Each structure stands twice: as structure tokens, then as C-alpha cells.
Simulated scan of single mutants.
Amino acid sequence: MAGAAVTAVLQFATHSIDGDYVLTALGVILGMAAMSTTLLGLQAFLGMAGSALGGALMMLLGNPLSGLATGPHWLPDGWATIGQLLPPGASGSLLRTNAFFDGTRAGLPALVLTAWIVIGVAFVLLADRRGRRSVVSQSDATDSTEAADASHLASVSS
């Protein structure tokens, strides 16, 4: 919903982008999903350290290297490449290509964003699996403690 709303404001209210609304909205939605899923996954897997790492990765590294304001071709080659492999850079490239160039060369940014979504979901699943293992371990410990208490009570009462 947020991606569709942002695209509607950019296209119909401010007229700052042009092109096919649906194609552009899908690109914005993919970019938002990539960034939010990655941040959610890092937070689920690493806790507050994951939030800090995700914030630093997206805001402090990704935004300046995205080339969103000018285009990645204005950045030095190595930095531009890194920037386009992070969600802010890939989102900006996908928005630019969908809004102004009818989706020409949108494949690579869409693939990069999809990879970040997969990485984020993988971190969430790993965190969930780790959490289930600790719950199973705790329940096993509780079961063995209850069994020990029951055998102790049986020996005391006899």
C-alpha cells in the first residue's frame, strides 16, 4: 500500500515522475519490501545489533552510494557498483528506469532487490529456527527436571 501511495503522490500530485503507474508502483513496492525485509531479518537474527547494522548499511552506506540524486554514473566505478548492489541504489535505478524509460534495463535492479528480500526472509527463518531450538532445549530441561523431582518424591515417600 505504501509503495502504491508514494507512487501516486509522485506521479499524480507532484508530477515529478512519469510513465506507467502500475510498473512504477511495482518497482517502488519491490524496493520498500527489500529494505524492510532486510532490516526485519537482521533485527530478528541479531537483535539490536542487527538493527544498528541494517541502519548503517542502508542509511550510512547505501544512501550516499545509491546515486539517486544524480545517477550512479557520476560516482567512481567501484563505489557506484557497490551502491547499485544495495537496496537504496537498486531501488533508485528501478524507479528511474520504470518511470522514465518504460522499464528498459530493469532486470538487474529487480534481481538485486529480490535477492535482498530472500536474504531478509532467510534471516527471519534462521532466527525462528534458532528460537525453536532454544524452546525445545528448555522444554527438554523442564521435562528432565520434572522427572527427577517425581523420582525424588517417589523415593522419599517410600
Rank of each mutant, 00 (worst) to 15 (best):
M1L: 04
G3N: 04
A4Y: 15
T7V: 05
A8Q: 08
A8Y: 14
V9T: 08
F12I: 01
A13G: 01
T14A: 03
H15T: 08
S16N: 14
D18G: 11
D18N: 02
G19Q: 10
D20Y: 01
D20I: 05
Y21I: 13
V22E: 12
V22M: 12
T24F: 02
A25C: 07
G27F: 02
L30F: 09
L30R: 07
L30N: 11
G31S: 06
M32W: 09
M32S: 13
A33Y: 09
S36K: 09
T38C: 09
T38M: 12
T38H: 06
T38D: 06
T38I: 09
G41I: 11
G41Y: 07
A44R: 08
A44I: 05
F45R: 04
G47F: 06
G47A: 12
M48D: 15
A52N: 01
L53I: 12
G54L: 00
G54A: 00
G54V: 10
G55M: 00
A56I: 11
L57A: 04
M58I: 15
M59P: 00
G62M: 01
L65M: 07
L65A: 06
S66D: 04
G67A: 11
L68G: 13
L68T: 11
A69H: 14
G71E: 06
G71V: 05
P72Y: 15
H73V: 00
W74A: 07
W74K: 00
W74F: 11
D77K: 15
G78I: 00
W79R: 04
T81G: 05
T81E: 12
I82Q: 04
Q84R: 07
Q84A: 02
G89R: 08
A90R: 06
S91F: 06
S91P: 01
G92P: 02
G92M: 06
L95E: 07
L95K: 03
R96P: 03
N98D: 02
A99H: 05
A99W: 03
D102R: 15
G103E: 04
T104F: 14
G107W: 03
G107V: 09
L108W: 04
P109L: 07
L111K: 03
V112S: 13
V112H: 07
L113V: 02
T114C: 12
T114M: 09
W116P: 04
I117Q: 15
V121C: 01
V121N: 01
A122N: 05
V124H: 03
V124M: 08
A127W: 08
A127L: 05
R130H: 10
R132N: 01
R133K: 08
S134W: 13
V135K: 05
V136G: 02
S137C: 02
S139N: 10
D140Q: 12
D140R: 14
A141M: 07
A141C: 01
A147R: 14
D149L: 15
A154M: 12
S155L: 14
V156T: 11
S157D: 15
